[in-house]
Design a protein around this nucleic acid. Structure first.
Lengths: 215, 215
DNA sequence: TCCTTAGGCTTACGATGTAAGTCAGCTTAC
DNA sequence: GTAAGCTGACTTACATCGTAAGCCTAAGGA
């Protein structure tokens, strides 16, 4: 058609891909569907992106770009804490992104800025180069690991009790007393069954503080 | 053919699938290839497994079954440390397993036993139900998060210096001083570029110890 | 006016998971 | 001993995916 749609661009392709992933996850993000969303045939996309992988890398970097960077002047610990919480929030907004982030090596501009600013904050606070590297890796492992597992958990937070009730009988009685105990506590409302993000995070931050002091 | 191969079974299918994943990753594990490895057509596998997903769940559970369970009598901290290191070792032996483990909900027998024994160790040491749940989640997030990122890292440990040297020039000079600084340290051999697994682990374990004491 | 070229389109190929149907041989009941 | 039925394999076929290769057309420059 000569309807002359607004011309495509890498930017527009990535934006549409991001929207599509947000709407239905990475499974629904196919080249044909993406083309259709842009009023174009699948193959036309290849004029603007090299491979589908490039699209995935691109939208992951867009997501990383949404994370609040640590404020340079702030105390390192509060800066890192805010950064981690922001990252967690962002990844929850884009539940598909976590798996991609962990399973491919991303070196887009947003990712570089993200790591750079983190190192900046730590180095300025007196962390050695190696310790700073250890530190941001420890924090990020927790951020990604926690978020990925949360995102892949089959139950919404408020369904846990119900789920426990449903599945409890399928555990061979007596064989798993501690799992049973946990399920019962959740069922009876004494515990919601969801470890808070900040629990592990603060374990790490406090540990880093001591590591920094011990130097 | 009436060659009457040893008859198939779910067990044999899973074993072969595990071997195939170990040999070439999950990408090479296709139903057709798996059938061929067993001297059988792809569709014949469906008499023994419901879907390919069931195979994936199955081999993940086989891998989890390789992890050394914490020894009941041991001090919780050393027990947890050994368990974590064993899990890390196992997941490095099966580099494809980590992503599967995190991205799907696995409730196979080995996984249940794994979690049960962990809770057992923690509860016996005086952790409350909720704290024990927080604790094993914090530990496991680190185990899986760390291992997954390590496994997906494009460079072998001893290639880091070389990689840093290769990629350093591609960083816009001056724009990423801290990343550059890190790369230089790796390049010059002052730091190998690989945070140790036990760094983050001990941060968490020490933190848990304090959380237990504070109760 | 003609030529280049950018940015679309069409067609086609080789994977892949799996639904559906077939068929041979073994087991079991009479 | 024979008929019936089940089991575990095979064959065929389909929809969907990424993408290679080549075509077509309209805009812009010479």
């Amino acid at each position: 058609m000569t309807l002359s749609r607004k011309p495509l661009s890498t930017e527009r392709v990535l934006r549409a891909a991001l929207a599509m992933a947000d709407a239905g996850g990475t499974d629904t993000l196919t080249m044909r569907a993406l083309g259709q969303a842009l009023g174009v045939e699948a193959m036309s996309l290849y004029k603007h992106v090299a491979k589908k992988d490039a699209i995935l890398d691109g939208i992951v970097d867009l997501v990383v770009g949404e994370i609040d960077l640590p404020v340079p002047g702030d105390d390192w610990k509060t800066a890192m804490r805010q950064r981690a919480i922001s990252a967690h929030d962002v990844l929850l907004r884009h539940p598909w992104a976590c798996a991609l982030l962990m399973s491919r090596t991303n070196v887009g501009p947003a990712m570089l800025r993200y790591v750079e600013s983190t190192l900046h904050s730590l180095r300025s606070a007196g962390f050695s180069v190696a310790l700073a590297d250890h530190a941001w890796n420890a924090m990020d492992n927790h951020i990604y690991g926690f978020t990925l597992r949360k995102v892949n958990s089959p139950f919404a937070t408020d369904e846990y009790a119900e789920a426990a009730e449903t599945h409890l009988p399928s555990l061979p009685p007596g064989e798993f007393p501690y799992l049973t105990e946990l399920a019962v506590q959740v069922m009876e409302g004494h515990y919601d069954g969801v470890p808070p993000f900040t629990f592990g995070l603060d374990l790490i931050l406090d540990g880093l503080e001591r590591a920094l002091a011990t130097h």
